[in-house]
Design a protein around this nucleic acid. Structure first.
Lengths: 161, 161
DNA sequence: AAACATATGCAACATTGTTGCATATGTAAA
DNA sequence: TTTACATATGCAACAATGTTGCATATGTTT
């Protein structure tokens, strides 16, 4: 079972003043090259409070690398399990830092919430995906659960109107 | 909560000799135009024992309509809730006839299994998606659960080797 | 500082989704 | 059955995203 944990634990968030340091540490630990593009990309994902899609990331990059480079680095990080890919729907894929890698602790596969109003993806590591009794002969490798709905912030705004 | 039921109930499968008749009936009941393209498309989905992707469908069509027409009709049927769209992952979308529409009965949203060996999507209407207690303020509209693994047939074949 | 493996940018192409528009076809009314 | 009209279709074209090959730039190790 693949492990996923996309929200920064509080302890972790406060411990590191300098995101770039942390991110560089991750890359070195993994034994891959530390380049500006990669550090920038991971910095952004490290700072994010929820998963970001490729556009979100591009918007936040001060120095924009070639589209292909960003694409390749995202794939590279996914392959190296440094970031986690969340396929929300046909046309939306989000990415988040895989913090289990840093924390050396494991969390179950969990639910991802997609707000149909603000289109944010919200990671809910506290909600593990429940088990299902598959029919005889079927074996499970991984699972993904996307819940569509309205998030707390958009629900509040709706009330105010 | 959207209702989904992709596998033909046995009673239903045996009742109709002529798929085209059934399919024409569906279109008429919905009050939309009955065209050859649409009947062919629904025929294929009606005959299928598991959800099909656009390529699967194209392969089975004896008379191939324009790519755009197939695309438009798939979207049209999804909008009219005649077929159900299953977004398996980034690059794979499958479609299945929405039999709840014919049967006038409802089933909960359920699990879809994706076999990583044969790449088939298998519908498991007997496994309803379990409920989750979302955090305060979040409301749920729909959900989708894709379980990746190895299906019964591919597991059997693995044993034989 | 040199040597080498790898990351990057660029050009190019593939796939899928999408729109506009002229023509063909299904359907309902005469 | 024919006519009239709304809608479905095919075609051309374009957008977004994913992907590869290759020359050049950069990082890492010695």
């Amino acid at each position: 079972m693949e492990t996923v944990d996309c929200l920064p634990p509080k302890a972790f968030r406060n411990r590191h003043r300098n995101s770039t340091e942390t991110v560089t540490h991750i890359l070195k630990k993994k034994g891959v090259r530390v380049t500006q593009n990669r550090v920038d990309l991971l910095d952004i994902l490290n700072d994010a409070q929820h998963p970001l899609n490729q556009k979100d990331i591009e918007e936040r990059l001060s120095v924009k690398p070639d589209r292909v480079t960003l694409y390749r680095n995202l794939r590279f990080f996914v392959d190296h399990k440094i970031i986690h890919k969340i396929e929300v729907n046909d046309s939306l894929t989000s990415y988040s830092l895989n913090r289990t890698f840093i924390e050396e602790e494991h969390s179950e596969e969990h639910l991802h919430f997609y707000c149909s109003v603000c289109h944010k993806v919200i990671c809910m590591p506290q909600l593990s995906i429940k088990e299902y009794d598959l029919p005889e002969g079927f074996s499970q490798q991984s699972s993904k659960l996307i819940v569509n709905g309205i998030c707390n912030i958009c629900n509040e705004e709706k009330q105010e109107i």
